[in-house]
């Protein structure tokens, strides 16, 4: 071996947040390369997304063909909820779903060993191990729906409402991510949780409607147990300038609590990892 290469690798040049960013960037790069490996697949996925967004608008048109508002929500206001929903779906299907479903498989066949042996935060490695960059189409369509709604209403959100909405979007992402991570954590004990994950993604589908249109028990569940309200309704109310600040603070605290619980459960689950036999 060459003399110059002898000895240990020099010490890490960066730590903490910088190293998290470095790893996240590398994961995103490799995912993009992976997605581009199969061009036809990537193109097909992007087209499929466009069709899905187009058909998602149809129920709104049907409902509002008969009436002017539902539980106080106008068609354009609901379009904003649908816009946030489409945006979050892009994040869910573009990052969390493929990555976390891959983890469930890795837990089952034992290849999670290779993730856990890396000197990087395992949660970061598994959360962004597999991305679908073509789901950026969802993000663009989601924002497009929100802009369309405001154009139709003939007004624009104030900078304050826009900023609050952006912060609440981040909290919505934290909640979405935390729930997905909790489901994956269960895989360490139960091994097969694919259906639980699909149950979550199917329930998430209801977030395309404002939670206030659901009554009774469902509204309570979607606010406090599976907080769909935090994901789309609250950011939509914020951008419309209709959100009370106490609700905004409650939403932020709720998302932080969800994130911390998910992190705690994840770390506990890692200790229970039993790997798979050789």
């Amino acid at each position: 071996m060459a003399e110059s290469a002898a000895g240990p690798i020099p010490e890490s040049s960066s730590g903490g947040f910088a190293s998290l960013l470095r790893v996240a960037r590398a994961l995103a790069r490799v995912s993009a390369v992976q997605a581009l490996q199969y061009r036809v697949e990537a193109l097909g996925e992007a087209l499929l997304t466009l069709v899905r967004v187009a058909t998602a608008v149809v129920p709104l048109l049907v409902v509002f063909g008969q009436r002017q508002s539902v539980e106080g929500w106008t068609r354009d206001e609901m379009l904003i909820v649908l816009g946030w929903f489409t945006f979050l779906t892009g994040v869910l299907e573009g990052t969390l779903s493929p990555s976390l479903l891959a983890v469930i498989e890795q837990v089952r066949n034992g290849t999670l060993d290779f993730v856990l042996i890396k000197p990087a935060d395992a949660q970061l490695l598994v959360s962004f191990s597999k991305l679908s960059p073509t789901r950026i189409v969802d993000l663009v369509c989601g924002l497009g729906l929100i802009v369309t709604a405001f154009v139709r209403m003939g007004r624009w959100p104030s900078p304050g409402d826009l900023a609050l909405s952006f912060v609440l979007l981040l909290s919505a992402l934290a909640v979405l991510y935390s729930i997905a991570l909790l489901v994956v954590s269960i895989a360490f004990v139960a091994v097969r949780v694919d259906n639980l994950f699909f149950l979550f993604t199917s329930t998430f589908d209801l977030a395309r409607w404002p939670t206030t249109i659901f009554g009774g028990v469902l509204r309570i569940i979607f606010t406090f147990v599976l907080p769909l309200a935090l994901m789309t309704t609250v950011p939509a109310l914020a951008v419309l300038g209709k959100l009370e600040w106490t609700n905004a603070v409650g939403a932020l605290l709720g998302s932080v609590a969800f994130f911390l619980i998910a992190r705690f459960v994840w770390l506990r689950s890692l200790a229970r990892y039993t790997s798979a036999s050789s």
Binding site: I9, P10, S12, V30, G110, K118, S278
Partner: peptide, 29 residues
């Protein structure tokens, strides 16, 4: 850790891509 029955190389990509990912993870100059 090397396991003869399991692999860390990404199946669809050339090994050089997994090498580059590991370079970032291990922070190798």
């Amino acid at each position: 850790l090397v396991m003869g029955q399991k692999q860390q190389l990404m199946w669809d990509l050339p090994p050089s891509e997994t090498f580059l990912l590991n370079r970032s993870i291990y922070d190798i100059p």
